[in-house]
């Protein structure tokens, strides 16, 4: 329990900053909606004259798109990338803290099993991420309510759930890396390489539209438009996400409980 509390305490300040930043970004982007919506009535009319195939080709349904949730599900990807960064950085930081500061040999000599060290650290990570995502959800809900648009609560919850899953997946990647790496100097290069890499892959999905990429890039597991219009999460990718999370954490346990500890 001490380790759990210690980790929560160490991450408290940065978590508050993250929550604040996420809240501001989500809230701010949602307030763009009225400006965006004002010209849309004519546009929808205009779009109805275009061939259906073209719009389907663009994966685009105007009636869905010009609702507040449709708009949110577009901008949500920018919030999602921040959540992913937070998850990854937190995962790597909490698990790699001892490796980074060369204090693992002190921790290991305490009368606790390595597996329970890892369990407590992972519990701390998941607690922080859950709290962050709940706060983010509250900010989003507040932002959407202020615009006064009608929206489906279930849709909003599902989109928020997609983001939460994404942050957990990136946290698991961070955990796995933290358990595996023998040397950890600074976290930023790893976070940038991995999260930004997947993000760019996602932003260019119009260009790289091969179907196998969808399995690879956590940002693309769930198409948020589809989530809203069907009001459900694709069960195949839900299973795939859970599998990835469990597999990465499982491997982390195997590695962490067996690895050699290098004293300074």
């Amino acid at each position: 329990m001490n380790i759990f509390l210690f980790e929560i305490k160490s991450s408290l300040k940065s978590t508050l900053i993250w929550i604040l930043m996420l809240g501001i970004v989500a809230f701010g982007f949602i307030q763009v909606f009225p400006a965006f919506y004002s010209g849309s009535a004519e546009l929808i009319k205009m779009l109805e004259n275009y061939p259906k195939e073209l719009l389907e080709g663009l994966d685009f349904d105007p009636n869905q798109f010009f609702t507040i949730l449709g708009f949110y599900s577009f901008i949500a990807v920018y919030v999602q990338v921040m959540v992913a960064f937070q998850g990854f950085i937190l995962g790597l930081q909490v698990i790699g803290r001892e490796t980074k500061a060369h204090t693992l040999d002190f921790l290991i000599t305490k009368p606790v099993r390595r597996s329970s060290i890892l369990t407590m650290k992972i519990a701390a990570i998941f607690t922080i991420l859950t709290v962050t995502n709940l706060c983010l959800f509250a900010f989003t809900l507040l932002g959407i309510s202020i615009t006064g648009e009608a929206f489906s609560m279930a849709g909003l919850i599902l989109v928020s759930l997609v983001m939460f899953l994404c942050s957990i997946i990136f946290a698991s990647i961070g955990i796995l890396l933290g358990a595996t790496l023998r040397k950890l100097r600074s976290i930023a290069p790893y976070a940038l390489g991995i999260v930004t890499g997947f993000f760019i892959l996602n932003m260019m999905k119009g260009i790289f539209d091969d179907p196998w990429i969808q399995w690879l890039s956590p940002f693309q597991f769930f198409d948020k438009f589809e989530v809203i219009s069907t009001q459900s999460l694709d069960p195949i990718f839900l299973a795939w996400s859970c599998f990835l999370i469990l597999a990465m954490i499982g491997v982390s346990y195997l590695i962490y409980t067996k690895k050699d500890i290098h004293a300074l």
């Binding site: 930023a188 290069p189 940038l192 930004t196 760019i200 932003m203 260019m204 260009i207």
Partner: peptide, 15 residues
Amino acid sequence: IHFYVLIMGIVYAII
């Protein structure tokens, strides 16, 4: 495409 190369370049420059 180059916009994304630019982002990569910035990340590289920062690191």
